Simulated scan of single mutants.
Amino acid sequence: MLGLDDEELIAAVAGAHAGEAHRFLETFDASVARRELERMGVHAACAHGSAYPVRLRDLRDPPATLFWVGSDERLASLTREPAVAVVGARRASQYGLEVGYSLGRGLGASGITVVSGMALGVDAAAHRGVLDAGGPALAVLACGPELAYPRVNRGLHGRLVGTGAVVSEHPPGQRALRWSFPARNRIMAALVELVVVVEAAEHSGSLITADLASELGRSVAAVPGRITHRGTAGSNRLLREGAMLTRGTEDVLDELFGPGARAGPDTPDPALETLGSSERSVLEQVEAGRGGPDALGLELRLSAAAVRAALGRLEAVGLVVRGALGAYERTAR
């Protein structure tokens, strides 16, 4: 549908409003539209323009016009350098959120552009990770680029506009429609060399992005999830069908540049620098799989109060999380 020309599109969808659509085309003034975009702080480039990302031309139905917020120079840089899409479930598990953030942070620290849809869950976590690392970030929206969708991500949208770019094929003011989400996924797939699916159920929109990436000749990777969790059935199926298994930033860099060709960033977690000796000992035991408070006390010969204090501190700084059965686990950060 998006590949139709103006007349074909009007015939296909306008119905009783065909006359109104034709009058709009006949009276459209490009210079007035450009001035209005400038007033709103929105940039635009049609498919033959110099600012239009070259990778989008690989699509059978590339956007006729790309709109974005953020400078022209920044968009050109973001779409010229190596890029990776990190996508996944909106209702992600704690593990999925941690992995999304960790991948975004690691790739951002490595100078890799991280592309995602700014959706709740994994998408937003990946964007926060790359922004926290000071790396290049690009969001692709299913509404006008100046609109924060969902609204709860207004702060994230502002950070992306300030240091990265937010793009869309929809003009300013256009609200998101149901069909526009799978449509925008093709843009994400085209803009990158690799799509990483962190966590996805069957029939997830993230799988649409992965399928589109495969059709375009892009690489597809997935993070393994629990086989008993329906929320990871889709991403686990990708692995079974041959997607690259991703354990972290190093695996992504190896896929982009070749094994060992580019080392991951040496970015120690600042939270680790604040730990005392007892907290470090407790963290080491949790990492070894001994995360029960009683077992920790016996292994380290610490009082129950000391174990609780150490675990509370580790949880507060985001290094551990308490599981459903009461034992603690190391987070993915």
Rank of each mutant, 00 (worst) to 15 (best):
M1D: 15
M1N: 12
D6A: 15
D6C: 11
I10G: 11
A21V: 10
H22V: 15
T27C: 05
R34F: 04
R39L: 11
A44R: 14
A47N: 06
L56I: 08
A64D: 14
T65M: 14
T65F: 10
L66E: 09
V86G: 07
R90I: 11
S93C: 12
G104L: 09
G106P: 00
I112K: 03
V114Y: 04
S116K: 02
M118P: 01
M118D: 12
A119F: 08
V122C: 06
V130Q: 01
L141P: 00
A142W: 01
C143R: 06
P150E: 10
N153D: 09
Q174P: 01
R178P: 00
A190C: 09
E193R: 15
E193F: 08
V196Y: 07
A201Q: 04
H203C: 10
L207F: 10
A210C: 01
D211V: 09
L212Y: 14
A213Y: 08
G217M: 04
P224M: 12
T232M: 05
A233W: 05
R240G: 12
R240H: 10
E241N: 11
G242W: 07
G242S: 01
L245V: 14
T246W: 05
R247Q: 13
T249P: 00
E250C: 03
D254C: 08
L256S: 12
P259Y: 14
A261R: 14
D266V: 14
T274I: 12
L275I: 12
S278W: 06
L283W: 04
E287N: 10
A288W: 03
A288T: 08
G289M: 06
P293Q: 09
G297T: 09
L298E: 15
R301E: 15
S303F: 02
S303G: 13
A304S: 12
V307D: 04
L311P: 05
V321Y: 08
G323L: 08
A324D: 12
A324S: 13
A327W: 13
R330D: 00
